[in-house]
Each structure stands twice: as C-alpha cells, then as structure tokens.
Design a protein around this nucleic acid. Structure first.
Lengths: 188, 188
DNA sequence: GTGTTAGCCTAGGGGGTCTAGGTTCAGGGA
DNA sequence: TCCCTGAACCTAGACCCCCTAGGCTAACAC
C-alpha cells in the first residue's frame, strides 16, 4: 500500500486550505487525516496535538500576511503606503477567511518569538515613518492602526456591517482617508 | 430526588459565568450539566443544541454590553460621551472576557434582529450627534469607532500589546484623544 | 540480506454532541 | 381521591473527535 508522503509542511498547508473552506474552528485532526486518506492516529507522528496544528496554521498565516504587507509597502510612502498596507491586510482576510481567523489563537510567547510575530508591528511602524511622530505617539498610532484594521476586517467578515445600505468599500476608503488625516494631525 | 429547577435563563446565565471562568470555547453542554449536577441529555429539553447555547450567551452579552453603553452615555455629550462609551466597552471586555469572546459568534440574521444587535450602532451614532457629521460620513465614522474599539479590546485581550513597554492604558487614552480630534476634523 | 528508521496501522480509552424512549413529580379535573 | 397530563430528568447508545500504546512494513544504509 502506498505511503501518503506526509510532512509537517504538507499537513499545515492542507490544514490552511481546509480552514479557508470549512472555517478555522472546523479544522480538526480527523478531517485533515481524511483529506489525506489516512487514519487520524497517523498524524500524531508529525503533530504534537490538535492545538499544535492550529498554532502552525496561525504561524503560516502570520508569515503570509507579513509577506504581503511587506510587498505592499515596497517603494511606497505616506498615504500610498498606508492604503497599500491596509488593503493587503483586508484582502488577505477576505481571500483567506480561515487563515485570518487562525490569527486569533493566542500563540505561546516562544512560538510568537520564533515566528517573528512582531514583524507586523515593525511593518506598521514603517508606514508611520512618513508622518514623523515622536515616541510614544508612534507606538500609540501603531496600536490604533492595528486595532482599526483588525477590527474592521473582523467585523466585516462577521457580517457586522451588512445591514446598512452604505457599502463597505466606501466606508473602508473613507476610514483610510480619515486615518491619514489623523496621522498628519496627531494631538500632542 | 430533587429537581434542579432548570430554566433557559438560568442555564444561559450559568453558561455566561462559565465562559468568563474557563473561556468561551470551553463552554460545553456537558460542563454546564455538570455544574447543575445533572446529566447532559437533560439540557436538551431546554436547549436546541450546543450552538443554540452559545448563541444565547452571545445575545445575553450583547444586551448587557448595550445596557452598560447606554448608561455610560446618559447625560453626556461630545468627548465625555465618547470616552464613557469606549470605556464601558473596554471595561466589559476585561471584566467578562468569556462573554466578550461570545460576541464573535456570528448570529443568524433572525437572532440578530430579535436581539436588537443594532442597538450598538444606534448608541455609537448617539455619540456622534455632538460632532454633526453629514451622511454618509456619520455611518463611516460609526464603523471606524466600532472597528477601533473592537479591535483594540480584542488585541489587548489576546495579549497583542504586551511585548512593549508603553502601557496599554496610556495608548488607549491617547487613541480616544486622537479619535476625538478626528471626529472634529472629519475629511470631506 | 540484515538492521534501522520512519511512516502508517489497529485497538482502545475518554470526552463531547445529540436522539429515542423511559420514569417521576406536580398540578388540575372528574 | 384518583387519574391524566405535561414538564423535568433519566438511561442507553450512536457518532465524532482527541490522543496513547504498541505493531507492522516499506525504504534506505551498510
């Protein structure tokens, strides 16, 4: 009988696809094993636990999102950079809802450090370079931007904006306008 | 043998407490039954399913949060109202992390309508009355505020801000300052 | 060819979800 | 008083998921 050729990488990639298809909460060791035509017990040679699997998906999503954000920022500055970064964030959430949901799992400090989870903060900080904010204002602004992007995409994905005629794209564009203005006039 | 005197209301209230204690993801029909000293099957005369239980906790949290927000807004206007509302939101999330996490479940449209989930939008809109924004700017601002409050509290609860010396309370206060300024100078 | 290792297996325990169908308790009507 | 009825709670059991222990086998090394 043929080996399935399982690898941690293949498993995690497949789990990420599974998450986008059926939702992150439904990513289960059994479902993943089924997808490979293999018994669930077999996956435990590659994975420590179901939680381990979910964390690996989160780390994958974290890295993918950071890569996209970095590309979006390349060669841009000021409002251009802000908009490109924000759109990279939102587009990723819409294309990969399962992976995006995976970002909500809290990683252990060790894993977070190893996966360079702080890349996101650094990238956000890069946007702000054009606005010349002194510390600690820059840190506060990083947190505001993060919160807003994350909150908007989360609420949008949950359908929180859907019961109003104003379309979400316009609100998003206007929100970015407003943040740009705000960063230019950050209160002392 | 004594009856436990189960009611949907008692069950949901207990489930909410359970959520705050052990996390929303660990709110299970079995655990709830155990808490009442009853077999899990017995709860299915009161609840349709585990999902039904979770939705009811979400509705409870939604209502509690809206009540707090409404009290916070009473008799306030302008920045006072903004700060009071935002703090009500954040304080609730910190006091009741399990209930707050429950808000992430997506309610079916029928349940959302029946639970007046739109009260939050209306309350947010009440804050904005002092800033005199024309439509659709007001709607966009409602969405921005919602996104920011939700995103900030979510990231804070997940420990997303914990690896930086700048304390979260100060960032929060500064974020509210910034939003106040922004609402006063909303871009055309 | 014989070991070694990694990849996959069966078996099985534990817990969560939910259904079907039974029993007991409380209150109302003949 | 006795019975009826409905509500509250039960047992039994099917199904899925998580995970461990231990066994078999294909592939590679020597």
């Amino acid at each position: 009988m043929a080996r399935a050729g399982l690898t941690v990488e293949r498993l995690v990639r497949a789990a990420a696809e599974l998450a986008d298809e059926v939702g992150f909460d439904n990513v289960t060791v059994s479902a993943l094993a089924r997808r490979f035509g293999v018994k669930d017990a077999s996956l435990y040679s590659h994975l420590k636990s179901a939680q381990d699997l979910r964390e690996r998906v989160a780390v994958l999503a974290l890295a993918e999102l950071a890569d996209r954000a970095a590309s979006a920022l390349a060669g841009r500055a000021g409002k251009d950079a802000l908009v490109a970064f924000a759109n990279a964030y939102r587009d990723y959430a819409r294309e990969h809802p399962g992976r995006y949901a995976a970002l909500r799992v809290d990683l252990t400090p060790e894993i977070a450090a190893a996966s360079r989870a702080d890349r996101h903060s650094e990238l956000t900080r890069a946007i702000l370079r054009g606005y010349h904010l002194p510390e600690p204002a820059e840190t506060d602004a990083v947190r505001l931007l993060h919160s807003t992007f994350h909150g908007f995409t989360t609420l949008e994905a949950a359908g929180g904006f859907s019961h109003h005629p104003r379309d979400t794209d316009s609100s998003w564009a206007k929100t970015l306008d407003a943040l740009h203005v705000l960063l230019g006039h950050w209160p002392a």
